[in-house]
Structures are given as C-alpha cells and as structure tokens.
Design a protein around this nucleic acid. Structure first.
Lengths: 168, 168
DNA sequence: CTGACTGCAAACCCTTTGCAGACCG
DNA sequence: CGGTCTGCAAAGGGTTTGCAGTCAG
C-alpha cells in the first residue's frame, strides 16, 4: 500500500532539512531508506524495508537499515509501533480495560472506563475489516520517571531528555 | 503492585475449571505460574514471573514459564501486551493518528479522527503520571484474513479459529 | 501405568556492536 | 582530507524446540 506521492516528497524534504539542521550526513542509503518508509502505509519492519530496497540498492545491509530507522526515530521523523526492544508481557485482567504506559520506563497500568469502552469509531475504519474491540492507550511519563529526570537534570544542570528510543 | 487477594482466588478458580474442562494437567508449576500473573498488576514478563517464583519453586525453568503463559493465553485466561513474536515496525506518519490492527495477520493501518484525538481520560489516570498523548487501537480481523478463514473453514468444514497466539 | 509435562541445553530469530574501509561535506 | 557512515561478521538478548526423564490423573 502506497502513500500519496506528493506527501512522500513533502516528507523527504522535511528529512533533508532535518539532516542539514542536525548536521548528519545525507547518504544515498539514508535517503532511500527514508523514502521507503515514508512511501509505505504498511508500517514496514526493518526487514521489509531491506527487501524493498534490495532491487535498487543491492549492497545495502540490514544493520544500516536499523541504524537509519532509529536515527529517524530519534529525530522524530518516524515512530515505532509494536515491539520495542523488550520482552512480551502478560496480563491476567480479562475484563475490557485500557492502559497507561510510561514512555520512559515502560511501566504499564490498567484502568477502566465505561465511556472509553464504547467509543464511536469512524465509518472509514470498517473498510479495513471487522471491529472486535477498541483499546485506548494513554502515554505519558510516570511519577517515578518524572522524579528521576528532575533529580538528574538538577544535578547535571541539563534539561530532561524525555525520549530515548522509547515510543511504545 | 498487587491485585486484590479475593480477585486472585477467583481467577485461580476460573483457571482450575478451565484446566479440567480443556483436559490439560494441573501441575504445581502451572498453578504457581498462573497465581503469579494473576496476582500482579504489573503485567510481568516471563522473566519477571520466573524471578518471583524462584524462591518458592527453585527448580522451575524459564521455558516452562513461557509454555504455560502461552497456554493460558490460548485459553483466554491471560493476554499479552507489547511485543508479540514479531519485529519492530516503523511509521513515517507523524500526525496524531490511530491504528486499526488485524489480530490475525498483524496488518496495521492508520486512521485519523479529531474526535478520538481529544478523548476525556478518567481522573484516576493522572495518579500514574503525566498524560502526553492518547491513542486508540481498534482490533479486528482484516478483510483478507476473514476471506481466508471462510475459505479454509469451507474446505475443511471447521469453524474459524480466530485466535492463534495473536493478541497484539 | 501412561501420556502429558518438565528441565535442560541447544537452536532460533531479531537486533545490536566492533571494526576496517568508504564516502560526504 | 577528516570524521562520519557503511558493510561485514560476530555477539547479544529474548524466546522456542527436541529430548529423556518425571508426574498428574
């Protein structure tokens, strides 16, 4: 599934600007890797990006794809979904519930809300398939991480970083 | 963080019933592993379950924990969050959007909704920490999987399974 | 008793890292 | 040209699997 061509070019321009501003090199590989993610609506994995790239760039390697994608992530040009580098976690709460997730340490907590259990989902979504359940994920920085960041920044006199390859 | 003791016992009973009904053996290990997940509100990883179990059951092994947790998952007694057995996926759409996810094949699609961008989150959630963003995840079976399941069940004359260690 | 279950170790997959050569700016 | 970036190969972490012994029913 393809993203609209104009949109892709707009994203590529934003990338080139960001590259200049952040002072990292704009290599052939980086450009093609970005073009590939930006042009796909499938949320490709690193492997999928590599596969798509191989025909045009036979020498590109998987580790470069990873390095570049995480770089883009750090720059805020892409985000991740699903698995971070973490293990599977299990939940014995079988009632319909929602999650609060700390973007900093990954802490997850359940909460319930009748209101959120019955959200109105846009018409357009049914075109994808059946709708079995809807879950809300609230992201933020948990109390503990907030405290640690404040302490750290007080000690080192730097501003809290907030993001560190944690997208959840 | 602990789950209410009565709730745990209720869950354990449900587990024992399910074990009897499904005809699998109710071993000491399985019981303790289930008691551990059921008693924790932290959504523990397999490793965390093992660590918690070691003092009481020094011989239990990580692979048994995994096997049991997936068994419980297949029985619908626990669910997973975060990483399945899959790789990280990247998304170059930087606008606030939501996801439709197929529980069968993992297909993910973006959709936008101003309404869903500004959900009212229950008071109680702020006790966990700051709220930076809220995302809605709609789960269902995508058109393609629905079609394949129908075809398969027509051919083999069995009902669609729907669930196969895919919880997203 | 006997088939299902466990523990062990080895395999597996995805991702990251160290290093020497290549290339952008 | 110099420092950054790439490709390679090897390591790493989490999870799964094959097998022989063990245990619940």
């Amino acid at each position: 599934m393809k993203v609209d061509k104009n949109e892709v070019e707009r994203r590529v321009e934003r990338f080139q600007e960001a590259a200049k501003k952040a002072g990292f090199k704009l290599t052939h590989q980086r450009l093609e890797i970005f073009r590939e993610v930006a042009g796909s609506a499938d949320h490709p994995s690193a492997e999928a990006v590599l596969r798509a790239l191989k025909p045009r760039m036979p020498t590109v390697s998987l580790d470069t794809v990873y390095r570049t994608l995480w770089l883009l992530n750090d720059l805020g040009l892409v985000s991740t979904l699903g698995p971070k580098r973490e293990s599977v976690r299990f939940d014995a709460n079988t009632t319909h519930h929602h999650h609060y997730v700390c973007v900093c340490c990954g802490l997850a907590r359940d909460f319930e809300s009748a209101e959120l259990n019955s959200l109105r989902i846009p018409e357009s979504v049914v075109q994808f398939g059946s709708i079995d359940a809807t879950h809300v994920e609230v992201r933020g920085v948990c109390n503990r991480c907030a405290k640690e960041q404040t302490e750290k920044s007080e000690k080192n006199n730097i501003k809290p970083k907030g993001k560190e390859r944690n997208t959840i």
